[in-house]
């Protein structure tokens, strides 16, 4: 059971934990479906702090909505324009927030492992909302939720993750979570955008997108930042798009039921063509909606129990 105190990485979750989160999210979604009052009293009196050191409006809003639908009090603490920009350390910030009565800190940080450090310093729960190039566990949970919703299962589902795996916390979290849930994961990227050590991951690695698409149930396109081009990870946006982008022709080679995912924000025309992003196969809008349900499930499972209980 996920009666752990923190959600730091998808790699921490075993199959039962992960399934419980997904099942809980499904129950919450159906409990709220069609209701006028989309609010539950579950976390009344609890305080959730969104501590965001990087701009990410969509993730922040998703967590905020999740906490509010569970009746928690929500404080948004953005590093910009705060004491943080005056040099206050992560530790001091965390201890200050906790002294103000926060029960959970949802943290987005540019440094890998920052949520782990936070968890060593505070009594309350820590939820990783994306740390550096490490993990983004709730994104993986909502992706798994979306796959299960669309395809009805995760076991044996063939998922192809395409793009900048090296710098992607979404890819890392998805690799561990999907493998734990029985999916078969293939990574496709230029070798420059795969980490040394990827051989130890529970995945198949390939360089040829066209070769894997006809056998894919899910294609997950990762955002590729143009500045990678300047560091010679690939020669040009055009070449990247030609070799690793998902356009209508490539989408046509997918099996009929296959879906296309993207964690957002998208670079239309770079890793994904507009007509693909807007097609019926695309789950991009579903992913956003499912994010709220999954984050409600996570907050409920972490905070619903006795304070400080393991």
């Amino acid at each position: 059971m996920v009666v752990k105190r923190h959600l730091l990485e998808a790699a921490d979750l075993d199959r039962d934990d992960a399934t419980l989160v997904l099942d809980t999210a499904a129950q919450i979604e159906s409990a709220l479906a069609g209701r006028e009052v989309k609010k539950l009293p579950t976390l009344r009196g609890r305080t959730v702090v969104n501590l965001f050191y990087e701009d990410s409006t969509r993730t922040r809003i998703s967590f905020e909505l999740a906490a509010k639908r569970l009746s928690a009090d929500v404080i948004n603490f953005s590093a910009k324009g705060s004491s943080v920009s005056k040099g206050e350390s992560l530790k001091d910030t965390a201890l200050t927030l906790e002294a103000m009565g926060s029960d959970a800190i949802v943290v987005r940080h540019g440094a890998s492992g920052a949520p782990h450090r936070l968890a060593q310093w505070v009594q309350g729960s820590v939820v990783n909302a994306g740390d550096g190039t490490h993990e983004h566990p709730t994104q993986a949970l909502l992706d798994a939720y979306t796959i299960r919703q669309r395809l009805g299962r995760l076991d044996g589902v063939r998922v192809v993750i395409v793009g900048d795996v090296l710098h992607s916390r979404v890819a890392r979290s998805n690799v561990w979570l999907l493998a734990t849930l029985g999916a078969e994961v293939t990574l496709v990227a230029p070798p420059t955008l795969l980490p040394v050590g990827v051989g130890s991951w529970p995945v198949t690695v390939g360089y040829d997108l066209d070769a894997v698409l006809p056998k894919a149930d899910v294609v997950m396109m990762l955002r590729v930042q143009a500045e990678r081009m300047n560091a010679s990870f690939f020669p040009s946006a055009r070449e990247y798009s030609r070799r690793y982008g998902l356009d209508a022709r490539r989408m046509g080679t997918l099996p009929d039921e296959a879906i296309v995912m993207h964690p957002g924000p998208m670079n239309r025309g770079m890793e994904i063509a507009a007509e693909v992003a807007d097609s019926a196969r695309s789950t991009i809008v579903d992913q956003v909606g499912n994010g709220v349900s999954v984050r409600m499930a996570v907050l409920y499972l972490l905070l619903g129990g006795a304070p400080g209980s393991e």
Binding site: I28, L301, S309
Partner: peptide, 22 residues
């Protein structure tokens, strides 16, 4: 109607898996 998310004793009893509301 699953009442888990409406209980006032979650802190005492800990979380549990949710059941259907239909």
């Amino acid at each position: 109607v699953d009442i888990t998310l409406y209980r006032d004793d979650l802190r005492l009893r800990g979380v549990r898996a949710l059941e259907d509301t239909r």
